[in-house]
């Protein structure tokens, strides 16, 4: 983990109510500078509400948040100075402006004190061939990549991504992951929410699982839900039928099997639970 100890985001006892409904129910979380943190959770768990409070779009009902050592609800000149260091990619935008990709990115670059190079950003999000195309004529995935371009144009220290790769094809998703890894390499802190477990696993230094407004665990993808110690499943072919057993000591079991077969075990598989299995179990238990 390429993190240092300085926090980029500090959340303590965060509560958000909409009338009677509690959307966020006491969250504590610290995200460190330079890390990619992924917030996972089912729809309605409070992901977007949490992100939008961090982005300064919503007021909190209780608790405290600091983002880059600043209160995101601050308005006026101080708020705009802070926004200069923040990149935001909202969940979905459907505005179909009659501006080309090039014109849009160029326009937004003027808002920032220290913008990235416009052409470089267009290259990075893979929209070079669409640079002259009007935003309204882009496909859903291309549209999303334009959103990402507008999120990173200001060279943010901290980038928020709310379900960034929804609607991407697998190739575009890989390219997007490479881009995020590159940004992390340059020192950008990234806070993302996602539905995709493989995305969290490929990108995140740490993941937090949120359900019903509460964070139920924060861990690295490899250790989430005690994944490292979860029982493995072994399957093999014996007497013309697939056999299966679950064990927390797969190596010992394999030794026994190997002795029994006197060598090769037919169609052997050792299966560790993937992040998705762990995640589904976790949110299942907390429903």
């Amino acid at each position: 983990m390429s993190t240092n100890t300085k926090p980029a985001i500090e959340i303590s006892g965060l509560i958000k109510r909409y009338g009677q409904k509690v959307a966020v129910d006491g969250i504590d979380l610290t995200v460190y500078q330079g890390e990619i943190f992924a917030l996972l959770g089912p729809n309605g768990a409070g992901k977007t509400t949490t992100v939008e409070i961090l982005e300064g779009f919503r007021n909190l009902s209780g608790g405290k948040v600091r983002v880059l050592d600043f209160d995101p609800a601050t308005t006026g000149e101080a708020g705009r100075k802070w926004r200069n260091k923040i990149g935001i990619v909202l969940q979905s935008t459907t505005d179909a402006a009659d501006l080309s990709v090039q014109e849009t990115v160029e326009h937004f670059s003027h808002y920032y004190e220290n913008p990235r190079n416009v052409d470089e950003v267009i290259d990075e999000v893979g929209l070079r061939e669409k640079a002259k195309e009007l935003a309204r004529n882009l496909s859903g995935g291309q549209r999303r990549r334009l959103d990402v371009a507008l999120g990173i144009i200001g060279s943010p220290e901290l980038l928020f991504l709310d379900e960034p790769t929804t609607g991407f094809d697998p190739e575009a998703r890989r390219a997007f992951w490479d881009l995020l890894n590159k940004l992390r390499g340059e020192g950008t802190t990234i806070f993302l929410t996602t539905h995709y477990l493989d995305e969290a696993e490929a990108l995140a230094d740490r993941v937090g699982v949120i359900t019903a407004g509460k964070i139920i665990e924060i861990a690295t993808p490899a250790t989430l839900g005690d994944r490292g110690n979860a029982p493995a499943r072994i399957t093999w072919l014996e007497n013309g039928q697939m056999q299966e057993l679950e064990t927390s000591e797969p190596t010992a079991e394999l030794k026994k099997l190997s002795t029994r077969f006197n060598g090769e075990i037919p169609q052997l598989q050792v299966i560790r639970p993937n992040l998705e299995d762990i995640y589904l179990r976790m949110i299942g238990e907390n429903r």
Binding site: E55, K81, L90, T93, D95, Y111, E113
Partner: peptide, 16 residues
């Protein structure tokens, strides 16, 4: 612009 998110997108930026 409010419905299509243009304004929300603007709000997250260093512009008054």
């Amino acid at each position: 612009e409010r419905e299509f998110g243009t304004l929300k997108r603007l709000r997250g930026r260093p512009i008054s």
